[in-house]
Each structure stands twice: as structure tokens, then as C-alpha cells.
Write a protein that binds this DNA or RNA. Structure first.
Lengths: 206, 206
DNA sequence: GTTAGAACTAGTCAATGTCAAGTAGACAAT
DNA sequence: ATTGTCTACTTGACATTGACTAGTTCTAAC
């Protein structure tokens, strides 16, 4: 027979199916049963592995953060200048949000995921750490006296806001029939402004 | 009898009920029927005024933007210094997000609202304009040469990101048992960094 | 008073998340 | 080989949901 009773790695298959469903129909009309259907299992199979819908989506969000962490690590590799590194992180971040739209949509949706999930937290912390470390290096290199947590928060907020608000910005540009610059360009501008802002807090002004 | 057949202003009553439902049960388990129940009308009454769920939520989002516009206008009133004005806008923005949590949750959810809705667009544009105008004044006052749309995008993104990511930041602080500063303080820090960043693009350096 | 139409209700339908109960296979102990 | 006990699933049922169709009730213009 074609189908084994034991699937092999159903949790992963369900995650993939979930990504497909979100990509095709959007999170608004996401359905556990549709996910099960695509994975070729019964409609209650997902519950067995993830408990409920929140469990599946939390697992997806965790996967998203883990992937983000990898992407961010890869982005700074081989880049020496701290500012370039920061910019590379920003670009990688928004690109990850684009290439993994389904994951990105879920990752910061407090109403859909279980924020207390330990795996989710550690995965998020790892991604956070990459940015955090990058800023430490930058501040040491340029002798900047800014609280790292504040700086990390600003950088992350700006990138996250950019991703969320991009459709709105695009509309604003359309209304004035001005073309919206590619998002990577926006990231570079943001990075430039923010780094400039940090430089206002140098210990010994040049 | 106590109830008139015609409600008087059912659309408004439904919006209020919707806010209550979102506040109490969250957007995840939001239900049109529950809204109707709370408003004391049949389960199909909302459809008559808003078409469908997306219609109701779009109306809520529009209301949110209109309120935000009022709040932002009020925040800058009587504040003369452009930087103080920008800071006041930021504080008002995050406070509006807190005091009107239900609206804020809906306003930027592309999957729940109809982005093509004209009322929603104009309401959003008005709120955007307040920030836009504030930055124009700032740049004129300080002779800064930065594209206003880029600047607006950065300010808005940072504030929006702060609201969305605040729970995450709080968790990061908890994990190191460091207290999270009040969000208004974060806004002021962000504003400071960002304005500093803009100042790096003065036409005639001081 | 009649009538047109707006405001709202009632009933129905397929679809969904979750729960309870059952079944199929793996695997170790006897 | 058989038993027993896991895990990995399935089947069936239930209440709830959004949306649709077809009515019903009230308002107001004439």
C-alpha cells in the first residue's frame, strides 16, 4: 500500500502544509482541517501533535525565529565593518520577512501563539542576540555610550515597523504617484539615521 | 416596550460591542454573532450594516485612525519646540495604542480589514499627515536635508514596532531580571536617537 | 391609508475547532 | 506466539461560526 500508518515526520509535514495554507489563503481563513487535508491525514491528527491550533502556530513561529537566527548569522559573516554588519542584519531581516511570509505573519501575533512557550522564547532570544552582539561591537568600535537594550529595541522596532507598515507606505506613495523605493533601500536609510543617532552619544566627540 | 425596533444607531452600538468583545476575548476568538448578542440584536443584523466581518473591522480600524488623528493633533497643540512636538506625537501614539487596544489591534491587520476602503485610507492619511507636518517643521527649523517620506516612515515604523514588540522586550528584560522602563521613556529615547540621526544631515553643519 | 423601502429577524447551510471513543501498528516482556 | 502497553492515528459527534435566502416589522413619503 502507498500509505504507511505512521507518517514518519507528521509534525514537519503539518508545518509545511500550514505554511502553504497561509501563503495561499491568508491567516484570516486559516483552518486546521485544511492543513490536515493537505497533509493527507484525518482532521484530528494535528491535535495529537500540537494540542490545538495555537500549538501548531507556536511551533511555526519557533521555526521562524530559528530560521531568522540562521539567516542573521549568515548575513554578518564575512562583513567586517560594524555599520555594514548592522545594515546587513536589517536587510536580511526584511528579506526573511518576505521570503518566509507565512512564518513572519505568525511570529509576532500574540493572539495566535503561546508567548510562554519555552522553545519559542529561546529561539527569539537567539535572534535577538545576533542584533545585540552586533550593536555591542559597533559601540565599542566607535566608543558610543548608549544602553544596548535601548539600541537593540530601536533597531528591531524600526525594522519590524517597516515590514508591518510597508503596505501603508506604498499606498502613501501611490496617492502622490511617487514610486516606493525598494525596501532594502529603506533599510539602509533607516540604518544610516539610527547609527547617526547613536553617534550623537559618543564618549569622546571627534 | 423597552426596545424600539429601530435601534437608533446600531452601527455605533455594534462597533462598541465589537471593542468589548476584542478586549475581553481577544481578536483570536472574535465572533460576529457574539457582537450581535451583546448589542441585543439578531445574529444577522451586523451584516446589514457592514456587509461582513471584514466590513465591521474595517469600520473599527477607520474609527481608530480618526481617533488617532484627533489625539495626535491634540498632543502637539501648545507645544512649540519641534523636537518636543515629535516626542509628544510618539507618546500620544503609544498611549493611544494602549488605551484603545482593540482598535490598535485591528488597524494594521491587513488580513482583517479592507485596505482599499476609501474612508480607511483617508483616515490613515490624516494621521500620517500630522507626523509628516511635524517633521517638515522640524527640518525647516533645523535646516535638515532629509526626505520627509523617509523620515516619516522611520518615525512611524519605530513607534509601531515598539508597540508590537513591547511584550517581547519585556520578556527580554525579565529574563535578565532587569525592569523594563515605561514605554513613554522608550519613546523619548527613540525620538532622541532619531532626531540625532536626522541632524547628521544638516545642510550647513553647525 | 397606501405603499416603498429601510431596519431587522428567522431559518438554513457548509465549515470549523475540539472532544470522546475507538483502531492500527510497533515493540518489549514473557 | 501471546500478551500488554505504548504511540500514532481515525471516526464520529457536538456546539459554534460566517454567510445566504427569505421573510417580517417599522418608518415615512405621498
Amino acid at each position: 500500500m502507498a500509505h504507511k500508518y505512521h507518517h514518519g515526520d507528521l509534525p514537519n509535514a503539518l508545518r509545511c502544509a500550514a505554511v502553504d495554507v497561509i501563503d495561499e489563503r491568508g491567516l484570516g481563513s486559516f483552518s486546521l482541517r485544511e492543513v490536515a487535508r493537505r497533509a493527507g491525514v484525518s482532521h484530528t491528527a494535528p491535535a495529537h501533535h500540537f494540542g490545538d491550533m495555537q500549538g501548531l502556530l507556536t511551533s511555526l513561529a519557533t521555526e521562524g525565529f530559528e530560521h531568522l537566527h540562521q539567516v542573521l548569522k549568515a548575513a554578518v559573516e564575512g562583513v567586517d565593518d560594524p555599520v555594514d554588519r548592522l545594515n546587513a542584519l536589517g536587510v536580511a531581516y526584511v528579506r526573511a520577512g518576505r521570503t518566509h511570509k507565512a512564518h513572519a505573519e505568525v511570529m509576532f501575533r500574540a493572539d495566535l501563539v503561546d508567548g510562554d512557550d519555552v522553545d519559542l522564547q529561546t529561539a527569539g532570544l537567539h535572534a535577538y542576540g545576533t542584533l545585540y552582539d552586533c550593536l555591542i561591537e559597533l559601540f565599542e568600535a566607535e566608543d558610543i555610550d548608549v544602553d544596548i537594550d535601548d539600541a537593540t529595541a530601536l533597531c528591531w522596532s524600526a525594522m519590524q515597523g517597516l515590514i508591518v507598515l510597508e503596505p501603508k507606505f506604498e499606498r502613501m506613495c501611490d496617492l502622490r504617484s511617487a514610486p516606493m523605493p525598494p525596501i532594502e533601500e529603506m533599510v539602509s536609510k533607516f540604518t544610516d539615521f539610527i547609527v547617526n543617532g547613536f553617534r550623537g552619544h559618543r564618549r569622546q566627540p571627534t
